[in-house]
Design a protein around this nucleic acid. Structure first.
Lengths: 215, 215
DNA sequence: TTTACCTGAACGAGCGCTCAGTCGCATTCA
DNA sequence: TGAATGCGACTGAGCGCTCGTTCAGGTAAA
């Protein structure tokens, strides 16, 4: 788990007690994420974040150095949650031949549950310094990487027809992005499809190219 | 062409001469689009836009009522251009059985050429009043609608295997979004795929479910 | 008394937008 | 023909306010 270095924990703080820092930052994240979703990053003031968190602006600035810090830890926390969801699904999977469908299903449900959060990342990452934008994108690839790994294993085990490396990789990206698509277009798609409908159709779509009919 | 009513033209201006207004707004769009891409909407000041356009802030505000107006006409112009690209491709198409592949190809090329612009729309639409956000989303659906129409015709003519209504619609959305995916992930994908590779693989992916092999 | 954490008034840079005024061209009038 | 008048387009200094950030001081536990 290399990517855990150089993370939130390394953002400087004025407060000594690390447990307290973590607790307080969790509070900040929870408050800020709501506000950012409601009003967007730019229209949310630091004072509002402080108030929603339950302490003063002064205190807020004991735990983060800037407003951008807050956006960064928020984005990071979101990725962490998505990743946790997918990995949990993977862990409890039976390892059978349709791990893939199960994983897609679970991932799409995570995207459904967190669609506001996913939108947030697409929309506000730009406000971060380039250095941090890169980190966020790495996180994104990280999740795609999980899909890729599963696909590669399946192909290696012959449980999926042979696909060349690039097709496999592209399929992993497609899974990621078709999940996000539900977040972007949910307001429209939901008129015709439930998330279950959507998952089923897209799973057929994704597996379609590889296996005639699954189930 | 219902959607042309209630467009840019209806945004109020202090200048009487409509030709002049159109010319000047075109200048504003060209200047602003560059700045927004470089620095983002929020970090771009109205003074910078005015300077880049070549006149004073005072004049700027003769042609638009607010900074948001500028973002709106920029987004609108971008959609207009994407749409024009797709429709042009459609118009010069031979109408043969692979209109679809041609259209996808052309659309993906447009996405390639305009990837910064597409990102801009995803990232900054939020800064607009809800009313206008809706209009932008309508424009988006508009483009998906073009794909849908083509798909429906092909299915009706039997040139595509039968797909139920919802699958056809979802396919149209997938085409749209997989085009955008190139804009989002280009920085990464371009390491392994050229836009031609990408187009080819995704076309197989999209058509895969419907027709065994195309070509 | 010292240390760790918290408070909120105050600062000041930045920015969207206004408006009093200028300029040049066209139209009217002597 | 030339002066007078009006008008539409353009200018930019400056207003008013917001908001991120700081810092001098407070409180409570050790």
């Amino acid at each position: 788990m290399k990517q855990d270095s150089n993370r939130i924990k390394d953002i400087p703080t004025l407060v000594k007690n690390p447990d307290l820092v973590e607790r307080r930052r969790r509070q900040i994240i929870d408050a800020a994420v709501q506000l950012f979703i409601e009003k967007g990053f730019h229209k949310t003031t630091t004072r509002e974040i402080a108030a929603a968190t339950g302490f003063s602006i002064g205190s807020l600035y004991e735990y983060v150095a800037s407003k951008e810090d807050i956006l960064y830890i928020v984005c990071d926390a979101i990725h962490e949650e998505v990743k946790r969801g997918v990995q949990a699904a993977l862990a409890r999977s039976t390892g059978g031949r349709d791990v893939l469908a199960e994983m897609i299903r679970e991932y799409f449900l995570v995207c459904h549950r967190m669609s506001d959060h996913i939108l947030l990342i697409y929309q506000e990452t730009r406000a971060l310094p380039v250095q941090w934008q890169k980190k966020i994108l790495e996180n994104e690839l990280n999740i795609t990487g999980i899909f890729l790994e599963v696909l590669v294993n399946l192909v290696a085990e012959g449980k999926l027809p042979y696909l060349d490396e690039r097709s496999v990789e592209l399929t992993a990206h497609n899974i990621s992005v078709l999940g996000h698509m539900w977040a972007f277009r949910r307001w429209f798609l939901a008129r015709h499809y439930s998330i279950e409908d959507y998952t089923q159709l897209q799973t057929e779509f994704i597996l379609g190219i590889a296996m005639g009919k699954s189930e």
